[in-house]
């Protein structure tokens, strides 16, 4: 599905990735590990086209990722970033805005019921819908961002420390939701060392 071929990426003087190669197949569950500052998030940003590699190629479905194909990829991947700057206004408005984008319009039909289901699943009260995003706690924001990603009905997920503000029970629940689904291709950064049962995890260690 994705392949990094000899990727090198440098920020000012520091090499983040040097001749880095890696393959990701459909249905893979890949835990990206490594100490902080090593460039884990950079992998996501390279895949989404927010950064360009200094050299090397990224393949998406066996074709080199280009300035144009990256826009298509962004419609296939659901990205939950560690940075929880997800917008202003209330939570319902955030969901509405996400679903009003041209790329997502098709998923608008059942969204009310979907939101209800996800809120129950991730233990959020529906009163939250009318609250301002800025008033939410870190854990609430994380779950709202996760739900916003799930509403897209995509099957590829890039998850960047999405459970850091959640308690243990919720952490397990959230990670299980993504890792136990055989349809999902999941790349995730997490410091939890959580190992779900019955799932073959791959680890991508950066150092």
């Amino acid at each position: 599905m994705f392949e990094f071929q000899h990727i090198t990426k440098q920020f000012s003087e520091k090499f983040v990735l040097q001749d880095f190669s890696f393959k990701i197949a459909q249905g893979d569950k890949i835990n990206i590990a490594g100490r902080s500052g090593i460039g884990k998030t950079t992998l996501f940003r390279l895949l989404l086209g927010f950064e360009q590699p200094d050299s090397g190629t990224i393949l998406y479905e066996n074709k080199a990722l280009t300035d144009t194909s990256v826009w298509e990829l962004r419609k296939k991947v659901a990205y939950v970033s560690q940075d929880l700057n997800i917008g202003r206004g209330n939570v319902q408005a955030l969901f509405d805005e996400t679903l009003s984008l041209k790329a997502n319009f098709a998923h608008n039909t059942n969204s009310k019921a979907d939101i209800k289901t996800y809120f129950a699943l991730f233990e959020l009260s529906e009163d939250l819908l009318s609250k301002d995003i800025e008033e939410l706690s870190g854990g609430e924001k994380q779950r709202v961002a996760i739900i916003n990603a799930l509403l897209l009905k995509r099957t590829i997920f890039f998850l960047d420390e999405i459970t850091s503000a959640l308690d243990k029970v919720l952490k397990t629940k959230v990670l299980d939701y993504f890792l136990q689904n055989p349809e999902f291709t999941v790349l995730y950064i997490s410091h939890d060392n959580y190992i779900p049962t019955g799932v073959e995890l791959k680890t991508l260690k950066l150092d």
Binding site: R45, L48, F50, R74, K75, V77, A78, Y79, S81, D83, N85, I86, G87, T98, L101, K102, A103, N104, N148, L152
Partner: peptide, 8 residues
């Protein structure tokens, strides 16, 4: 970037 990643 977040908006772009949502498909905007």
């Amino acid at each position: 970037f977040y908006k772009l990643s949502l498909g905007a």
